[in-house]
């Protein structure tokens, strides 16, 4: 659906050039919700804008729906843009106009008849659950309602792709969740492919199937969300994962672990899916000569699946600990030794 291949983009800045994108390639398949996560300035905003031609790459190619963007003239690009909806962090609505007028704008631009516009606006407003706000002015709405109008506007022309630019970053956690649920419905019920950028890992966790992590203009990690959350490789990814899955040991426990004189290992365990963890830990606890302390535990729901994280302190003879590790691996858990240096 969307292919971005070896794209680079440099902006001339006051204090030297800014490399917004360096040899970036991503591929978004039809029907996916693809998330790009990164701290501000990582280049994700520029990457998103390549897809509808708001930014042009210096190098590399962007292909949307089989069309190479570089080969399109202005009129063709405008036609393509009508098939790509866009939602913004600051909503970018006409504040002085009614909800209806805002949602109708893309249809008017496309020259759709008045009856058809009425019908379609009513349809999308019903979808975003704002049919009762039709005649309200945008300035009278809450942030969450404004974003619903933004989504309705983006959907008005029946797009195949929806680009979300930090769509939930200006909203409170509860509203964020309801907007994410709405985006999920857009994806499932309308079959719209969604490409979103965010700096909130919760957003990725809640609705994305694939994720790319960006840092300093590069994609440092990419893959299925469960894999990336399970085995984050890059340091920046670990930092992001840590924002939703706490795998740190409380400071108090650290001193306890360090003061332990017997042989020990501290293990980070991640179970994905409905693998039954409790019997495993119960079994470990019942091993004679092995002491098991749970230093941390955390359960997260994502992608309709469950990820459980345990931090265990295993104390005992070296062979016993090694056997316990084997058992953990055999149970299908992702295991990682945590090094407790002074």
């Amino acid at each position: 659906m969307i292919q971005i291949e070896h794209v680079s983009k440099t902006f001339a800045g006051g204090s030297g050039d800014v490399h917004a994108l360096r040899d970036v390639s991503i591929r978004v398949e039809k029907g996916e919700i693809y998330g790009i996560v990164g701290f501000s300035g990582a280049g994700k905003s520029t990457l998103l804008r390549l897809v509808n031609g708001l930014e042009r790459p210096d190098e590399g190619s962007v292909t949307v729906n089989g069309q190479k963007l570089a080969a399109l003239n202005k009129a063709q690009l405008r036609l393509l843009r009508r098939k790509i909806g866009m939602v913004f962090q600051q909503f970018n609505l006409l504040e002085g106009k009614t909800v209806f007028a805002n949602v109708a704008i893309p249809l008017k631009l496309a020259g759709v008849s008045r009856e058809e516009t009425e019908r379609r606006v009513a349809e999308v407003l019903r979808f975003v659950e704002l049919e009762d706000k039709r005649t309200a002015y945008v300035s009278q709405l809450s942030g969450g309602q404004k974003q619903r109008v933004g989504i309705a506007r983006a959907l008005a022309t029946n797009p195949e792709i929806l680009l979300c630019d930090e769509a939930t970053s200006a909203l409170d956690p509860q509203t964020t969740e309801s907007i994410l649920r709405l985006l999920q419905r857009v994806n499932r019920e309308m079959g719209v492919t969604i490409l979103l950028i965010t700096h909130q890992m919760q957003v990725i966790q809640m609705i994305c199937s694939k994720v790319a992590v960006m840092e300093q203009g590069r994609v440092v990690e990419e893959g299925a969300v469960l894999d990336v959350f399970g085995r984050p490789k890059a340091e920046v990814t670990r930092r992001f994962v840590r924002t939703v899955i706490n795998d740190r040991i409380p400071e108090k426990f650290v001193t306890v672990v360090r003061s332990e004189t017997r042989y020990q290992q501290v293990e980070l365990l991640k179970f994905i899916g409905d693998a039954v963890q409790e019997p495993l830990i119960a079994q470990l606890c019942r091993t004679p000569g092995l002491e098991v302390n749970i230093l941390g535990a955390n359960i997260q729901e994502m992608q309709g699946s469950v990820m459980s994280v345990f931090i265990l302190q295993l104390i005992g003879e070296e062979a016993l600990v090694a056997a316990a590790e084997e058992r953990i691996d055999a149970a299908g858990a992702l295991r990682e030794r945590l090094v407790m240096d002074e």
Binding site: L54, L80, R81, Q90, N92, P106
Partner: peptide, 17 residues
């Protein structure tokens, strides 16, 4: 706001629009 103009461009509006 530049955001409004960006939204307009993203909708495929012509300069006149």
């Amino acid at each position: 706001s530049p955001g409004i103009i960006e939204a307009a461009q993203a909708m495929g509006a012509t300069t006149w629009q």
